[in-house]
């Protein structure tokens, strides 16, 4: 390893995850190594049940590995306490979910603002940031709408704005277009590509859709808990 070699943003070594049920051990991820560099746009593919979501959740710090190490930006996240991990997530990870997972009682504005409630930003600063993010996803005119007054594509764009708002180190997306029609899916994928291109965001996306994977810069295949190709 040359000393001036670029450090990976996400460095995974010997990662294993298994579930124990009774005396039965269900292996999900097996001794997995993976590096993701800053500014990459990675698509994670593989058959259902291969462990894609599990891997993504581990990288995002919402699940704990059974063995191995996950370093994100130099931090060994598996060793953090629950509350430290929560704080870490609030600063470093933006989440995009298949079913958007917006708070139904908050407006588009309120949903995008949500992660900023954990920061010390003033009301005015928060407002400015939220307006910028909503503009970026093209929903300025929908700021006061509740999620159930928005289409699926619009809800996902709100979710993307929410994932961006804290300027996280990493954006994780689990089948972000899984619940959308083809045209809307293309819009969302275009938006993610722009985030990567124009803002230099590091994105890891799980997808079943080869079209979606095409947009990504790098493809990873997971099969039965092991990376292939």
């Amino acid at each position: 390893m040359r000393p001036n070699e670029r450090q990976p943003l996400v460095a995974i070594h010997g990662l294993s995850k298994y579930y124990v049920r009774g005396d039965q051990v269900i292996p999900v991820l097996l001794d997995l190594d993976l590096d993701v560099f800053e500014g990459e746009y990675v698509a994670l593919m593989g058959p259902s049940g291969s462990g894609k979501s599990t891997l993504l959740n581990l990288i995002a710090g919402i699940d704990k590995p059974s063995a191995g190490e996950i370093r994100v930006g130099g931090v060994d996240i598996a060793s953090l306490s629950d509350s430290d991990l929560a704080l870490w997530r609030s600063m470093h990870v933006g989440f995009i979910f298949q079913f958007y997972n917006l708070m139904p009682v908050l407006t588009a504005f309120g949903n995008v603002e949500l992660p900023l409630q954990l920061t010390g930003l003033s009301r005015a600063e928060r407002r400015e940031r939220v307006e910028t993010a909503l503009e970026l996803v093209g929903l300025t005119d929908r700021a006061t709408h509740l999620p159930n007054e928005l289409s699926g594509g619009q809800q996902q764009r709100v979710a993307i704005a929410r994932a961006l708002i804290t300027d996280p180190t990493l954006i994780v997306a689990d089948e972000p277009t899984g619940d959308l029609d083809r045209v809307t899916a293309q819009e969302i994928l275009g938006l993610l590509a722009r985030l990567n291109d124009e803002l230099g965001k590091t994105i890891i996306m799980v997808t079943h859709d080869p079209k979606a994977a095409e947009k990504a810069r790098r493809l990873i295949h997971l099969e039965k808990g092991v990376l292939v190709g």
Binding site: R89, F95, P104
Partner: peptide
């Protein structure tokens, strides 16, 4: 539960 899990994922505590 999903909303609570989402809030926790975003960094809100238990």
């Amino acid at each position: 539960y999903t909303e609570y899990a989402t809030l926790k994922a975003l960094g809100f505590g238990n």
